[in-house]
């Protein structure tokens, strides 16, 4: 399988390396190389190339907010917009530190979905009332506060159908994907 990203074409080995990094970005080039029979210098070159082309955007820690003592609440906000203004609304939402993720969707109406965090319900409401509702083009907003999180993972590139089956089986068996 080959994937093209502007000037860079990814081959199967690149995808495998990306997959390995998404499982554990702290593992060494040598450790990755050992998994796929590559020299660590080859792994290094491929990773650097993918970094330079923006395919690997950054490396970050995935934190369990609850264990870190955070009492924040999470909400999923759906913003119905005037189609002419939706880009601007989405861009404005991206600038807000309270907003973690922003997506647009076209179902019956053009809408924006965003994942929002706030200290409590009051601050969530204040943020939406003072910073989202006044944005030009916002027609109405529906917000659902998350009460229980069942799953949260980072995106995985699955380039091997067998692996996909394996992950699904493992997920069904254990209730969550083992890291």
């Amino acid at each position: 399988m080959k994937l093209k990203n502007s000037s860079l074409t990814l081959d199967d080995m690149d995808l495998k390396i990306l997959d390995a990094l998404q499982q554990d970005a702290k593992q060494t080039y040598t450790a990755i190389g050992e998994q796929f029979g590559l020299a660590h210098s080859t792994v290094y070159d491929r990773i650097k190339r993918m970094e330079q082309h923006g395919i690997i955007k950054k490396y970050m820690a995935v934190i369990d907010a609850e264990k870190a003592g955070s009492k924040n609440i999470t909400a999923i906000m759906t913003v119905y917009t005037d189609p002419k203004e939706s880009e601007k609304v989405a861009e404005n939402l991206c600038d807000a530190p309270e907003v973690l993720e922003v997506y647009t969707s076209l179902s019956e109406e053009l809408l924006i979905m965003a994942k929002v965090v706030a200290e409590n319900q009051e601050s969530l409401h204040n943020f939406i009332a003072n910073s989202v509702a006044p944005l030009p083009g916002v027609l109405r907003i529906r917000t659902s506060i998350v009460t229980k999180k069942f799953k949260e993972t980072q995106f995985l590139i699955v380039n091997d159908p067998k692996k996909l089956t394996f992950i699904k089986e493992k997920h069904n068996k254990l209730g969550e994907i083992e890291q």
């Binding site: 906000m77 319900q121 969530l124 409401h125 939406i128 009332a129 907003i141 917000t143 506060i145």
Partner: peptide, 11 residues
């Protein structure tokens, strides 16, 4: 801005 509950704006 008229809301019906926390985060639910009527438009």
């Amino acid at each position: 801005y008229f809301f019906t509950s926390i985060g639910n704006y009527t438009g």
